[in-house]
């Protein structure tokens, strides 16, 4: 890895941590609803710098972010980590395999979907072994994820466009 790339990853991770933190202060009508703004950075990194860099940014964001907030190694941290990693993993997979079929919006939808699926799966296997309860909330969470995912994808598309216009 070149030192220039290291620097970029650090800057992007810092952006992600900032967004991750800012998001906590946005009041929401449904308490566990999150926009997942940090995913904008992950997706931007994926498209501009590749999969490895995106994974780096995601893991750094979650580890440092949770240390700042104070949830490091707690249940919320474990859920963020599995969800973040699987979201980045599947976004990378879809981008390399079907990149021609989707804009950042489609890739972001995939990210949101796998983020939520991983979160539900982790919650089920590690904490709440109540399949009924999980199935009850799953469709709602996924539905909300579609909208926030599309929103984040649109933001990513605009950011990438801006970067390309003024590199």
């Amino acid at each position: 890895m070149q030192s220039q790339d290291k620097y970029r990853i650090a800057v992007l991770a810092a952006y992600a941590i900032a967004l991750h933190g800012v998001e906590r202060f946005i009041p929401m009508p449904i308490p566990w609803l999150r926009f997942g703004f940090a995913n904008i950075i992950a997706l931007t990194t994926l498209i501009l710098f590749g999969f490895k860099a995106a994974m780096f940014v995601t893991i750094i964001r979650i580890v440092i972010g949770s240390m700042i907030i104070g949830t490091f190694l707690g249940p919320a941290f474990i859920m963020s980590l599995t969800a973040g990693i699987s979201a980045t993993l599947f976004m990378g997979l879809f981008y390399t395999l079907f990149g021609r079929l989707f804009s950042p919006i489609g890739i972001s939808l995939i990210g949101a979907l796998f983020h939520n699926l991983a979160q539900l799966g982790t919650a089920y296997f590690l904490f709440i072994h109540n399949l009924n309860a999980m199935l009850m909330i799953a469709p709602l969470i996924i539905l909300i994820g579609i909208f926030s995912g599309a929103l984040n994808g649109a933001a990513t598309a605009l950011i990438i466009q801006k970067i390309r216009e003024n590199p």
Binding site: Q2, Q4, D5, I47, L48, F49, G50, F98, G99, R100, L101, F102, S103, P104, I105, G106, L109, G153, A154, A157, L158, I160, Q161, I163, R164, E165, P167
Partner: peptide
């Protein structure tokens, strides 16, 4: 360095970027 991507042709706002796959 910035990699070449297959998104280069999308330069005119958000709407033209949206594809049928999305």
């Amino acid at each position: 360095m910035i990699k070449k991507t297959n998104l280069d042709f999308l330069k005119f706002g958000l709407l033209p970027q949206i594809r049928i796959g999305d």
